[in-house]
Write a protein that binds this DNA or RNA. Structure first.
Length: 507
RNA sequence: GCAGACGUAGCUCAGUUGGUUAGAGCGUCGGAUUGUGGCUCCGAAGGUCGGUGGUUCGAACCCACUCGUCUGUACCA
């Protein structure tokens, strides 16, 4: 009968994660580096809330009054639908529109924040993740797009990704639109088909040209035997798109890009005009010294299907990313953006052209972590002041030692567990990674002394001592000093440990 | 969403043809050692076998459903 009480099971919602101290510190470091680049380009921060009214995000399902399934939504007490933001661009457009009279355009702005997507999570894909965006609102020229591409390249390098290990791929939506028109997919009635074609093109890096061709035609069967219906184009149409898209990074400048387009679409002026815009962007960045090792034209770059109107670009990592099991994983892009000239107009009715991009911080961190390029934090654990006597007077003395260390800028704590088992205090310090333990029992107290134990050096010495009695009695790496010399001695040991770490990391 | 694989202790995994009381290693806790971490030794705790229902004298094992994880794929602002 004595059935255990049914305990509540502690569980994390699917697709969400708790972040460790190390992750938080690493993220802070990444954010600081990204922010420094954006600031240097003259951008200012602005922050918007996690919730927006769903209509401002533009995510109602067609022909219904319910929000899209991909967004987390709740109804406010007045029955209006609100949703957690799924990116930072739509909220920015809302903010700018609401404050359009106060904001000096062109407006350069950046912001980092959590965004939420109610989708199937996967490795490195979560339902809450962080983006770090930069946008220029009210800048119509391709020179603003060019600036974005360069800033994105600078950001990659600021994060420690060497040149040649990443690339910014640039395209223009108007090229793709023109091409679709040219192969006879224009008009309202073919909208769905155009989307299918764009999705197929976007899969180039995943499936290769042959895979894309299948998706443009009848369809493609994947490894599990699942069949994806294709766009149903004829071979002529498929070949034109395949030729457009399969360039293997050969389009190095304005001239070669235009020649490429000209070769396939020599009688379509709108395509050539859009192509010229990409060419101009490439020339602009090259005049600033950003060569094809950093920014390159790529007609297969598609990006989001929703609101981009011109230039689109994305940052891709070129090194292999391996997971915990050592398998190489398809990583795809770590950020991207483009021109969205219609987004502010939805609210204001005014033409307010804008361009910007987004970096997937969480995703990029996964890549850097798996690569071992993530700055492992150099935060050291606190110095532990151990407790030998539990009377209030003694506790005050221990607490004061901790305060003195803190006031001297040294991370320190007094042991707050059960002080009666002294061995456990050092065990705690060991597991916590404390560099030093401070010990003062009645003997030391009477002599006006403290014992200072270098736990790192002690750990090293322990390898040479097999016998526990000897190990305990020898009190390795432990010195006795006058109370007045506590701070200086601790600082000396910490400095020595820091030097050792530096030497070790430099190999 | 679709397809497949897998769910046994905190973790990694054994578990015979369906047969008594479900095991190991690691970890955790306690002791040897109440003022000294590591090592070693001794001991203990820890399980609705993912859940529900069914077949059976009997189910961790077989069946159905369901939940979760992983892989591929679709969607992805």
């Amino acid at each position: 009968m004595a059935k255990k009480p049914n305990k509540l099971k502690a569980r994390l919602p699917r697709g969400f994660v708790d972040r460790s101290a190390q992750d938080i510190r690493a993220t802070d470091e990444m954010l600081a580096r990204i922010r420094a680049v954006y600031e240097r380009y003259g951008f200012d921060p602005v922050e918007t809330p996690a919730f927006e009214y769903t209509d401002c995000l533009g995510k109602f399902l067609p022909d219904t009054d319910r929000p899209n399934a991909g967004v987390f939504s709740v109804q406010d007490d007045d029955e209006q639908w609100m949703s957690l933001r799924y990116d930072l661009t739509a909220p920015l457009a809302r903010h700018v529109s609401e404050n359009i009279n106060e904001i000096q355009l062109p407006y350069r702005t950046y912001r980092a924040g959590w965004v939420f997507r109610n989708e199937k999570p996967g490795p490195g894909r979560f339902r809450q993740f962080m983006q770090f965006d930069a946008d220029t609102v009210g800048a119509p020229g391709v020179q603003a797009d060019a600036e974005m591409c360069m800033m994105m390249a600078d950001t990659m390098e600021a994060l420690g990704i060497p040149r040649g290990q990443y690339v910014i791929r640039v395209n223009n939506r108007k090229v793709l639109d023109g091409v679709l028109e040219a192969i006879g997919l224009g008009g309202e009635d073919q909208a769905e088909r155009r989307l299918t074609v764009l999705r197929a093109i976007d899969k180039l890096d995943k499936f290769g040209v042959e895979g894309v061709k299948l998706l443009l035609g009848e369809g493609r069967k994947d490894d599990s035997g699942d069949f994806t219906k294709g766009a149903g184009l004829d071979t002529n149409q498929i070949d034109m798109i395949a030729n457009l898209v399969d360039v293997k990074g050969e389009l190095q400048d304005r001239k070669s890009f235009n020649e490429h387009l000209n070769y396939i679409f020599d009688d379509h002026q709108d395509i050539l005009d859009a192509g010229a815009e990409i060419g101009n962007l490439i020339n602009l960045v090259q005049s600033c010294g950003y060569g094809i090792d950093r920014i390159i034209a790529d007609p297969s770059c598609v990006r989001g299907l929703e609101y981009y109107t011109g230039t689109v670009f994305e940052a891709e990592l070129l090194f292999d990313v391996t997971n915990e099991k050592g398998e190489v994983v398809q990583f795809g892009s770590v950020g991207g953006g483009g021109r969205y000239d219609g987004l502010v107009k939805r609210f204001t009715g005014r033409d307010v052209p804008a361009t910007g991009f987004s970096i997937g911080v969480s995703r990029l961190m996964t890549a850097l972590k798996n690569l071992g390029k993530l700055n492992t934090s150099d935060v050291t654990a606190p110095v532990l002041v151990t407790v030998m006597d539990g009377d209030v007077e003694a506790l005050g003395r221990y607490q004061k030692m901790a305060q003195d260390l803190r006031n001297a800028g040294i991370r320190a704590e007094m042991y707050q567990g059960n002080w009666k088992k002294f061995g456990n205090q050092l065990k705690y310090a060991d597991r916590r990674g404390c560099p030093i333990a401070i010990i003062q029992g009645s003997d030391e107290r009477e002599a006006g002394e403290v014992q200072i134990k270098d736990l790192i050096e002690g750990k090293r010495l322990s390898e040479e001592i097999a016998d526990n009695v000897t190990w305990r009695e020898s009190r390795p790496a432990q010195v006795t000093v006058k109370e007045a010399d506590l701070l200086e001695t601790v600082r000396g040991i910490l400095d020595g440990q820091a030097d050792d770490r530096k030497r070790a990391s430099e190999g």
